[in-house]
């Protein structure tokens, strides 16, 4: 269970994070979406007790990152977006070192390490030097490292960044497995469709502020009042373009002459959209198809963050 209240981080006059309020229930996989510099890593650094908030606090399983960082560290497994590994340390020694760092007894570590390596499909690399592993393997090993003390909360900052498609799929499968184990997972990514597939909830952060929060379906709903409409016409497009530009609730009209397509955003109700189509047909405009495009998560993200930039 994570409770974030009024979390703010300032660098001079710049707000890297501004009054973030969020509640994430136990066992939920929460996707944090945002452009570079939006405040994702700052949030994760604060939750991982690497950075002190200027204002506000976050409670992880009831422990405050501000006042009980040592206790928080026992509750979380953190995987940063960029990390290095120690040269001349083998995969099992790497995990053993971090296990010891969390105070796990040697006998318990001996049992744990093969299990974790199996979980991340690295059993065959147990005695390989860590710096010789591929990027994807290092990412998986780092995930195993984050799990060594059996934390209830996982904070994964862009775990799939820089991975090839196969490694991405492998990482996604492991995360699904962790989800089934009941872990609360906070994950940030630029690969939005991947998040949609994995996450129970999504938070969109932009300019240090949480601009949207909810399930993937709820975020889609937030955009329902502005639907992208695509109209395929036969012949001359100018008549339809001048007609549509005069209509209420219409914005962002774009024309693709090569494909005889006109696209626009429509904010009216279903009834008003139906009336618009009826009027266009009565005016003998050469419409072949009139369709509402499906908004995917990328569109949602672009739409939401555009709104914040304009503020």
């Amino acid at each position: 269970m994570i409770e974030i209240t009024g979390l703010t981080r300032k660098y001079g006059n710049f707000y890297a994070l501004n009054d973030l309020n969020l509640s994430i229930k136990e066992g939920v996989v929460f996707g944090f979406v945002g452009a570079n510099g939006a405040g994702k890593s700052t949030t994760f650094s604060i939750l991982a007790t690497l950075l002190q908030p200027t204002k506000g606090d976050a409670l992880i399983n009831g422990k405050s990152v501000r006042n009980e960082p040592h206790e928080v560290r026992k509750q979380i497994g953190y995987m940063p977006d960029f990390f290095g590994v120690y040269d001349q340390l083998k995969a099992d020694e790497y995990l053993d070192f971090y296990g010891a760092s969390y105070g796990i007894p040697a006998k318990e570590r001996e049992k744990l390490i093969p299990e974790l390596l199996e979980l991340v499909n690295l059993t065959h690399k147990r005695y390989e030097y860590v710096d010789l592993l591929s990027r994807g393997m290092k990412q998986r090993l780092c995930l195993a490292r984050a799990l060594i003390h059996n934390p209830s909360v996982l904070i994964l900052d862009e775990p799939a960044s820089g991975l090839d498609p196969r490694a991405r799929v492998e990482m996604r499968d492991i995360l699904k497995q962790l989800k089934s184990m009941g872990k609360t997972i906070l994950i940030s990514s630029h690969i939005l469709p991947e998040l949609a597939e994995m996450c129970d909830e999504i938070g969109v952060i932009d300019g240090g502020q949480l601009v949207a929060h909810g399930s993937v379906a709820e975020i889609h709903e937030q955009l329902q009042n502005e639907r992208p409409v695509s109209v395929h016409l036969l012949g001359d497009l100018t008549g339809f373009v001048s007609f549509i530009e005069e209509q209420p609730f219409v914005s962002n009209v774009t024309v693709d002459e090569r494909r005889s397509l006109v696209k626009f955003s429509y904010r009216g109700s279903d009834e008003e959209q139906m009336a618009l189509l009826k009027t266009a047909i009565l005016k003998d405009l050469p419409i072949i198809t009139f369709s509402q495009a499906e908004t995917d998560l990328e569109d949602v993200f672009m739409e939401i963050t555009k709104g914040v930039e304009m503020k």
Partner: peptide, 14 residues
């Protein structure tokens, strides 16, 4: 410089 410190600091070592 090797980016290993962040992980080390998130362990429960004092």
């Amino acid at each position: 410089e090797k980016q290993t410190l962040t992980i080390l600091l998130t362990t429960s070592q004092r």
